[in-house]
Simulated assay, not measured.
Amino acid sequence: MSNKVILSCALTGAGDTTAKSPHVPVTPKEIADSAIKAARAGATIAHIHVRDPETGQLSHDVNLFQEVVERIRESETDVIINITSGGGGDWVPNDAYPTTGGEGTDIQTPEERHEPVGKLLPEMCTLDCGSTNFGNMLYVSPTDWLKRQARLVQESGVKPELECFDTGHVRFANQLVEEGLIDGDPLFQFCLGIPWGAAADAETLSYMKSRIPGNGKWAAFGIGRMQMPMVAESVLQGGNIRVGLEDNLYLKKGQLATNEQLVDKAVGIVHSLGSDIMTPAEARKHLNMLNPYGKED
């Protein structure tokens, strides 16, 4: 068990959650404010998606990402900014025309998915390491596309977080490392409990972490009611953690949460297990990253 862990807060995500909780941030100001509050509560990293301010639905607008990032930076809050590069990967079946995506299909090229990262140069970004079933929807991320996207991330100098929703994704992430497309010590994120990816349990976590390289670092999260149990399990198995409204809306049964409340609860769990949270400065050194202004910390 590590003495200190990195705590990420996934602020808003891309799911249809805004109608389920008034606490899910939507506008750039709301997302930035939530990141700042989460950081003050103890979050090391703020993981950022953006939404259409009018509809609350997923957006890929680079200008919205830029406003969020600028608001956080201008606040002088020390938090590592992690922008999603998952982009448009949603394929919804269309029974009438099976070769054409149905309503809700949203597919972007690797170059389009990379655009916010390449323009804004955050310290970190995600890189989803394979296609997977999300309920009855398919998230599409083919291997050749991922290699192109990994090269773009590498050329930008941004630290990729290798998102693994299933065991095969770990294998492909290792392939990216072997092909020299990931610089430095690779950082894996095990995304557990999403139907129908890897299960959110101790055995699955133990297996996935056993498959990464010796110099690999890792974090894990569970969705819904498994969010806090996976916080504890990840700490016990020596990894880093993630919470936030992207993955879970509740502080406890029947009580909707804010991001800062979820961070505060996770901090309490970490302390109860005899560990502590890394500051952003400590995490930058641990991950061999640059600071927000492009200089070595």
Rank of each mutant, 00 (worst) to 15 (best):
D128C: 10
N94F: 04
G130C: 13
P93S: 03
S156Q: 02
L181R: 12
V158E: 00
A173H: 09
Q57W: 08
M137H: 11
E163G: 05
Q57H: 12
Q154I: 00
F134I: 15
M137V: 15
Q189C: 05
I182W: 00
L64D: 01
P142A: 08
L64A: 02
L120P: 00
E123V: 08
V170Y: 02
Q149S: 11
L176R: 07
P142R: 11
C129N: 12
L138M: 15
S59L: 05
D90W: 10
E161P: 02
T84P: 06
D144Y: 14
P186C: 06
R73P: 07
S131C: 12
T55W: 10
S156I: 01
D183A: 07
G88S: 04
R171V: 14
V92I: 14
P93N: 04
V153S: 00
R171E: 14
V69A: 11
M124Y: 09
T99L: 14
I81T: 06
L121F: 08
E163W: 07
V62F: 07
D61I: 06
F134G: 03
E179Q: 14
Q175T: 12
H60Y: 15
S85R: 01
C125E: 04
A96H: 14
D90V: 13
T132Y: 14
D183N: 06
P160R: 00
L146D: 03
G104Y: 06
C164Q: 06
L120H: 04
G180I: 09
T77N: 04
T100N: 11
P98I: 11
L176C: 09
I81V: 15
G135E: 03
K159N: 03
D78Y: 06
V68Y: 03
G184N: 02
S156E: 08
G135M: 06
Q149W: 05
Q108E: 15
S156M: 02
R71W: 05
R171Y: 14
F190P: 00
R151W: 07
R148A: 12
D166K: 06
S141H: 12
P142H: 11
T100M: 12
N82Y: 04
Q154T: 02
T109L: 09
V92P: 02
Q149Y: 07
D61G: 08
T132A: 13
E76K: 15
G56K: 04
A173K: 04
V140G: 02
G89K: 00
L64C: 07
G88E: 03
K119N: 06
K159E: 00
C164N: 09
K147L: 05
I182A: 03
V92Y: 07
G184T: 00
L121V: 10
L58R: 11
E155A: 11
G157C: 06
M124W: 09
E111Q: 14
G89F: 01
E161D: 10
G87W: 01
F172K: 04
G88P: 02
I72K: 03
D90Q: 14
T143Q: 13
F172C: 08
E161N: 12
P186L: 12
D128M: 11
F165W: 13
L146A: 09
P122G: 02
D183I: 00
S75P: 07
T167C: 11
